[in-house]
Design a protein around this nucleic acid. Sequence first.
DNA 1: TCCCTATTATACCAATCGGTATAGGAGCTG
DNA 2: CAGCTCCTATACCGATTGGTATAATAGGGA
Lengths: 193, 193
Amino acid sequence: MDNRETILKCALDLFYARGYDGVGVQEIADAAGITKPTLYYYFGSKKGLLEQVLNTYYSKLDEMLGSAVSFKGRVPERLFQIAKAYFAYAAQYRKCYLLMLSLFYSGRESEGFQTVYPLIEKYYNRIVQVFQDSAYELGNMHGRQRQFAVGFIGGLDHYLMMCLRDGPEDETVEISDEQIYGIVHQFMYGIYS
Amino acid sequence: MDNRETILKCALDLFYARGYDGVGVQEIADAAGITKPTLYYYFGSKKGLLEQVLNTYYSKLDEMLGSAVSFKGRVPERLFQIAKAYFAYAAQYRKCYLLMLSLFYSGRESEGFQTVYPLIEKYYNRIVQVFQDSAYELGNMHGRQRQFAVGFIGGLDHYLMMCLRDGPEDETVEISDEQIYGIVHQFMYGIYS
DNA sequence: TCCCTATTATACCAATCGGTATAGGAGCTG
DNA sequence: CAGCTCCTATACCGATTGGTATAATAGGGA
């Protein structure tokens, strides 16, 4: 593993554990076993480093979600495929996923939020599109496509955070198809069914 | 407004906008028009200041949720009452609510998370209890009370964040009973109904 | 050999970090 | 008046912040 990759990995670990603002550049350099100029040679600035961390791992989400979104079928099945891809990503790239989540929830004027926002918006719109495309099946949503998308992703995010955050460090958390099905089902049909 | 209150208010504003780690003590003192020793006289440390900010506004949530939780009725009606109280709190104490949310989502090893966690856990357990108490009505939940509670609060939180965060600063965001009813209804019966 | 580019470390910068030692003023009680 | 408590500001602490000027390395092509 070359220096660049080592730095990326250490930065992710530290940002995940203590937050973007809570970690200094020096500390990342120490963890990676290099010095600050090396870090600045590759990333230019602390913000540049965060961008690279996020972009590197976000591209994986984009891929994994891609095939799920284009899956043809009825709405429950499509949402299940999406949730499955989403969960698989979150489980595999757990730290980056949780880091993105925490940045998304952080203050609007913070550098972290501003860096992650464009990425999040991108995949939000993909999910909105899914509901949009399902208008013939779901009936008139009265413009609530966005609300559905927000509710759907919000449910997944919240569930994942609770599952992943408390799990053992550096160990893959298994989420079964039954669990995923249960969550999607609840979203579709409520808790009474 | 005395110095203590001024400091609390300014700290909340700044923490909300740029995060706990993103704001220095000096900046808070400047915003409040006092000096650092005054701040340290009242709060002892930066963490102490955060604790006081959170406790001050959290106690309101505790009150507002209290009567809603003890409301007698069937599950949908109870959840509606809780959601209503929760939304009222979030709208009224918007910055503190969103600050708590962002701290809750931040890294486990950060000071912010550790400060807010005990508070969050407290009201989470109250909601879990509601589902617990409704076992006779919801049937065997197979120990999923916690999952229901997480899903319910997660839905409210996510919805609120999207509503409140983008709204105009220092202006109350109105959330109608119809909206609240819609969200609770979706939680209970899904999006198909 | 010489040069060029890519990569790295030493040593430094001003500014800010959280926090404090010290002392002075205001107001009350005796 | 003295003495006390409450509150506040000046001035400072060592450590760390994000970031950089400079130069030394190493390797490849000519």
